[in-house]
Design a protein around this nucleic acid. Structure first.
Lengths: 348, 348
DNA sequence: CTCTGATGATAAAACGTTACACCTTGCGCA
DNA sequence: TGCGCAAGGTGTAACGTTTTATCATCAGAG
């Protein structure tokens, strides 16, 4: 593999000049010198080694993205948007699947830090970020996606999220407005701030209507590794089967995300219930699939594209120190309810 | 940030010794020296800089994975398995979304090469790999996922794939066996070797039964960027609506992948057709969702886990030169038909 | 006593860039 | 004539590791 010195030698110039050429500091040399160097680069098939470059400059233009599970297309879409946003800043994205396992998460983060990645975006929204304190102290900037702004937290330097609580309220109000009173909440382990928030929103919508959530209608799935959502759809299916055969039968289900909602469809059908006639279902996320489903899913939208841009801009800002004086930036976005065909008025 | 010299100084040893400690060359120093160094590392929160390490050793333990679209959960699952397989070899995976755009693909590959990534796995299966020739000459090892072994090709150094043709045949035979004669093929632009192979398989199954594919039943969607499959489900929906209102009406549909198949369900229902009573549908991939769908989807399975292990092992072998003498390795896997509830006997 | 061979540790030269400081020219102008 | 300055270059010390060769020290063998 040809190095910068080989090019310099072949072109009869110094390495500095070659370096200037490849960094397009054009005014530093004559046009002909530049061209000569360029030609040599071409014939030698010289490819600048960015590892060396990185070592020298200290910045590596890569951010990490740690997601709970690419098995859920929602996170696929998130990675896509994050990647596109990063591209605008000429950054690359390293995607890691941590299945919500805190140990795996910190492992990944550590290995990223070692490769001198200076910032990571965290997709899971654990209730505590204590396991990241150490990394943060080592200088890693940590951004949280899907986690609301909350009391000062030294380890998280920026975050963006839909207002989970509001999302839950929208879902709850919609269902209440249709006459539903027996509303179930279906989720995997409720141990992330986003899940907690969504359930909290549902609760407060009910409370406002003078009702309480029936504990027996809160279905919380167990999990295999960490508390991932690899099998969200499968869990949703089981959940609804159990709920519909339980002692208090729900007339509506609020699923923690669209994959659980899709599973819920299957669960309802397994027992011969029709959606939405016999059971209304609302999801969360508005993944592409939710419009395709039959019936199309009523859900809460997360505007991924803008969220991705916000978090990437904030994180890169932090890393490059351009806005270090501004301190941490946390932004919450208003989610919207998308009414489709999976919810219907309750017949008395 | 503390460097290896700081540690050396604080521990009263030489940098070489520290280096030996962090590389666990244990027999090179006394137990107490080792412990002393370890303690200092802990208190100084020293993190070895792997960029520097990389520069020195030349190997960076990262492979690239270029997928057509994470919007399709199939590719999400592929990344997951590739990542797990790579982890066994202590390698990281850089996932890139190229939307089947050749220019984007080579861009990504080039930028990977610059960061001294020595191998990439390519998920799209373009008909020609000419646009990668240049990269291959620069020393990048290229592995193809989802592309069958074929005549010697200098640019691809290893590949793994399901036998696409056989997959198509299985689908075709199954449908023929159920009495179907009007079988449609639904796909995005048929410009990848996998799509070509699947269609070819269907063709040859029909031919064997003395039939021909009706050109009007081959539905080929246009596309927006590159010829991605971001909107596979949407295309499948439109496809089936058009086919069912066309001059020759299919009784069965073979979709190029499960996302198109899911779209096909929606298209059929849009026009009041029932699956499978009025229209049989078979997909390809066996994504997790296909078992959840109502009715559960009959499809062709791709054994992702073993495929991922094979390709990762082969690629890393090539990179580390341990099997360079063995030359390129190409392996084809027999796909299996998973019969579920979306296909039914044709009533005359 | 000297020689041999471990054992434990070290110094210094890379790896491929970048960037700072420093040279040459040639030219316009007081 | 001498000076300053711009344009076009160059030399070289880093960046933070790994690794090779080298060096003490000490135990036991001859």
């Amino acid at each position: 593999m040809a190095g910068i010195r080989d090019v310099a030698k072949a072109a009869g110039v110094s390495v500095s000049t070659v370096s200037n050429v490849i960094n397009s500091r054009d005014q530093k040399m004559s046009a002909e010198t530049r061209q000569r160097v360029l030609d040599v680069i071409e014939t030698l098939k010289y490819t600048p080694n960015s590892v060396a470059r990185q070592l020298k400059t200290g910045l590596n233009r890569t951010i990490g993205l740690i997601v709970p599970s690419v098995a859920n297309p929602f996170w696929g879409a998130v990675s896509l948007h994050i990647e596109r946003a990063a591209m605008k800043y000429d950054h690359k994205v390293l995607v890691c699947n941590a299945e919500r396992d805190p140990a795996l998460e910190t492992n990944y983060a550590l290995s990223l830090l070692r490769s001198s990645v200076r910032g990571v975006i965290l997709g899971s929204s654990p209730i505590t970020f204590d396991h990241f304190r150490d990394l943060a102290e080592r200088g890693l900037k940590i951004a949280a996606f899907d986690r609301q702004a909350q009391g000062a937290d030294e380890v998280i330097s920026c975050s963006v999220s839909v207002d989970q609580e509001l999302g839950g309220q929208l879902a709850g109000q919609h269902l209440l407005g249709l006459g539903h009173r027996q509303i179930a909440f279906v989720s995997g382990p409720i141990r992330t701030s986003s899940r907690l928030g969504r359930l909290g929103g549902l609760r407060s919508a009910l409370k406002r209507a003078g009702l309480e959530v029936d504990q027996r209608l809160i279905w919380q799935g167990a999990n295999v590794r960490g508390f991932g959502d690899a099998e969200g759809a499968e869990l949703g299916r089981v959940a609804v089967r159990e709920l519909l055969s339980g002692e208090v039968r729900p007339t509506a289900v609020f699923a923690v995300n669209d994959m659980y909602a899709l599973g819920a469809y299957a669960g309802a059908r397994d027992l011969g219930y029709r959606v939405p006639e016999d059971l209304s279902i609302v999801g969360f996320d508005n993944i592409a699939l939710s419009a395709i489903m039959q019936p199309a899913l009523t859900t809460i939208e997360q505007p991924l594209e803008v969220m991705a841009e916000i978090i990437v801009a904030a994180l890169i800002g932090q890393i490059e120190g351009s806005n270090q004086d501004e301190g941490p930036s946390h932004v919450d976005i208003k989610p919207e309810l998308i009414v489709r065909a999976s919810t219907a008025r309750l017949y008395a």
